[in-house]
Design a protein around this nucleic acid. Structure first.
Lengths: 196, 196
DNA sequence: AAGATATGAATGATCATTCATTTTTCCTTG
DNA sequence: CAAGGAAAAATGAATGATCATTCATATCTT
């Protein structure tokens, strides 16, 4: 097995374990077991336990941001763009619940060490929303009195909370696209100029 | 000093320490120091470290929910009610940042032990929003096609994320009432029937 | 066979929790 | 009202459990 491959296996195992137990309740030895690797091996690929979490963030968020940007690129209409963004977010969550769990919990953790890493990517993600809003304003489609920066927070917060719910809800199986459209258009009716 | 008083002092110290360090990085001895109390004393008032966090939740959330309900009670108009709710939420956060920090981080923690406790109160809080929506629908003011349950999540998520932002933002000092009105009315324009 | 990888038992650091001892409270009674 | 003493409350040093991390040894690879 190549080194790169083993690196991924460990990160993947870590994702599952972190999602299940939370970072502080996860044992390195459990990640090792899950990855079919000896405890010591992990330290050939990562500096320490913190580094595993940081690397997980780096990898996953870089990937997500790249994908989302590519997906949104060709869409002109800011309304459609926003709905697509919502759809994307919820789809990602739906597809990889462990990732969603890790991001949600750890995004809030306030350690100095995480702050630095989470912020860089998190702000990049928020910025995608803010740019959609700003673009819509320039095109005269969105109200001018709303701060794109604040809107981005509001929208991200909604999606994030909704994710927790959709992921947790045992009973009903929601149709992600349906919910995304609903939420997106619900925002839009608050955002679009009334005189349009 | 009476027992009840010491209990509060410890909880208060814990709130500060948890907010600063996060639950898992907080040391019981540090809470003790902050509370001007010996390590062992804490165990006369709490079963263990987990119990401190749980008690903190119980106390604070019970208080908040009671206050919010009382505040909202006399307001008839669902629109005004919703704006008032937003205002309340952000005001609480503004007034007690340590509490906000603790709730935000720990609300996401996925330990079995917290799940149980957080859910009871958290759902009660969400329910306040859902009831405002449902009431508005009954009164024919809000669109009927939106699930109050989902709306509650969306609105809570927004406020929660906004809180993080307002609390963290070093630079600008936001006027809470202004932001609350903005966010609330921004929701409303997406909620209120267009033909009104 | 030499270098690269991997192993997992042993180490040591970090706290949560306990409990033998001390201090405070407050009631009794001379 | 003061002394005494028993119960309640508080103390903090000692204990022990829990892992993250290391490293001497083993196993692969070429």
């Amino acid at each position: 097995m190549r080194g790169e491959e083993k690196y991924r296996m460990i990160l993947n195992a870590a994702k599952q374990v972190f999602a299940m137990e939370g970072f502080y309740n996860s044992k390195v030895s459990e990640i090792a077991r899950e990855a079919h690797v000896a405890d010591g091996t992990i330290y050939l690929y990562f500096k320490n336990k913190d580094d595993i979490l940081i690397s997980l963030f780096e990898e996953e968020l870089t990937r997500i941001i790249k994908t989302v940007k590519t997906d949104l690129e060709p869409i002109e209409d800011p309304c459609k763009k926003l709905i697509k963004f919502c759809d994307n977010h919820l789809t990602i969550v739906e597809a990889d619940r462990a990732l969603a769990e890790v991001i949600q919990v750890e995004l809030r953790q306030s350690n100095k060490f995480m702050r630095e890493y989470k912020n860089k990517h998190f702000l990049a993600y928020l910025n995608i929303i803010a740019e959609i809003i700003a673009q819509g304003q320039q095109m005269g489609v969105f109200r001018d009195d709303l701060k794109p920066e604040l809107c981005a927070r509001v929208i991200f917060g909604s999606l994030d909370e909704l994710s927790t719910y959709l992921v947790t809800a045992k009973r009903k199986r929601f149709d992600v696209h349906e919910v995304a459209t609903m939420v997106g258009s619900s925002f839009l009716n608050g955002l679009v100029k009334e005189n349009n």
